[in-house]
């Protein structure tokens, strides 16, 4: 098992390298560079050229890349062109917000999705199933930001049940320990701060969870139906096992294999969705950093954020493969 993990971790390196090359080349092929964006109205060709020299952007792209790589290996991804701060500092500050949002969304999607998908399969063709299928169709079809605005309008603005934006009310005294607002409140026993953060989290987490939830429901349902028709479930029934045993030991364990793959793939989409959700709810996480960086062509920040996203994606999928190895004995030998 350990060898499997190490081997997979080593595979991460070339993946990230390749991605960084592509990213580097792609960014620099975009029209308009950071200099033009920074200078705004005052941009003249001379001033742009001057600034490019300062930023080192006048050098050939391969040279720039090698320099970037040399520094990146030491953990230095440069300073943001917008704020002048090291991008790693910026990211460290914004990361907890995004993780909190994504984890909450993923939790909702998994905790609701698997049972719902299972129930839909079990009561196939009944109203519960039909309703669920229609719900998931709507769920995947509605754009995240549109759903975000709807939720915000109804439950925050019209009904006033939840705060419309931000991570915490401004008048709340909160001590920061980990940067995860809900968790910090629990750790420092500032439960009102925790509660406040939680109410802020609800709407954006639901908006972000919708698509992965719908996908997980559908995959679970299909997978459970597939397994219920399999020969070994028939064998289990032929042994006269209690229905609960058949369900848990024989149906669910097998049915969860494709679901775990789906969860891994969904984290990629989740990161993309987080950018949109953060914008709607003024969340101030990585998504906000990224959106700004794209607008202003902040190369250092863009590079760092995208590579981080890729790293997370790869690691989550490694986790998925590990979960596979735990559930499915056939994987271990390979």
């Amino acid at each position: 098992m350990l060898r499997f993990i190490v081997r997979r971790l080593i595979q991460v390196v070339p993946t990230l390298l390749l991605l960084s090359v592509l990213l580097f080349a792609w960014l620099r092929s975009l029209p308009g560079g950071p200099a033009a964006a920074l200078l705004g109205d005052k941009a003249t060709p001379e001033k742009i050229a001057e600034l490019n020299t300062v930023l080192g952007l006048d050098q050939p792209i391969p040279v720039q890349y090698v320099k970037f790589l040399g520094r990146a290996i030491t953990g230095d991804f440069g300073n943001s062109l917008i704020t002048g701060e090291p991008v790693t500092t910026e990211i460290a500050r914004a990361l907890p917000a995004t993780i909190e949002l994504s984890v909450a969304a993923l939790l909702i999607a998994v905790v609701l999705g698997i049972p719902l998908g299972y129930l839909a399969a079990r009561y196939r063709g009944r109203p519960l199933d039909t309703t669920t299928i229609i719900g998931t169709l709507v769920g995947v079809a509605v754009p995240v930001f549109f759903l975000g605005y709807l939720l915000k309008q109804w439950f925050a603005v019209d009904l006033g049940w939840f705060p419309p934006s931000g991570r915490q009310a401004v008048d709340i005294e909160a001590t920061h320990v980990t940067g995860f607002a809900v968790l910090d409140g629990l750790l420092t026993r500032e439960f009102d701060a925790s509660w406040d953060a939680l109410t802020h989290l609800v709407l954006p987490a639901i908006a972000l969870a919708t698509i992965p939830l719908a996908v997980i429901v559908r995959i679970t349902r299909a997978s459970v139906l597939d397994v219920m028709g399999s020969d070994f479930v028939r064998t289990a029934n032929s042994k006269g096992l209690a229905p609960g045993t058949v369900r848990q030991r024989h149906v669910l364990r097998n049915a969860l294999l494709p679901v775990s793959t789906t969860i891994g793939l969904q984290t990629g989409l989740l990161l993309a969705g987080a950018v949109l959700t953060e914008k709607v709810f003024v969340w101030g996480g990585l998504g906000t950093l990224l959106a700004q960086a794209i607008e202003r062509r902040d190369y250092p920040r863009l590079q760092a954020v995208v590579l981080l996203g890729a790293l997370v994606y790869v690691l989550v999928n490694l986790l998925v493969d590990l979960s596979y190895a735990i559930i499915d004995p056939r994987v271990r030998v390979r």
């Binding site: 028939r234 042994k239 045993t245 024989h250 364990r253 097998n254 294999l257 559930i327 499915d328």
Partner: peptide
């Protein structure tokens, strides 16, 4: 006809315990 993800042992003992 055998469940691929649980041991042969469990697939036998579950009948006996049942």
């Amino acid at each position: 006809s055998l469940n691929p993800v649980i041991t042969v042992g469990l697939q036998i003992t579950e009948v006996l315990t049942r």
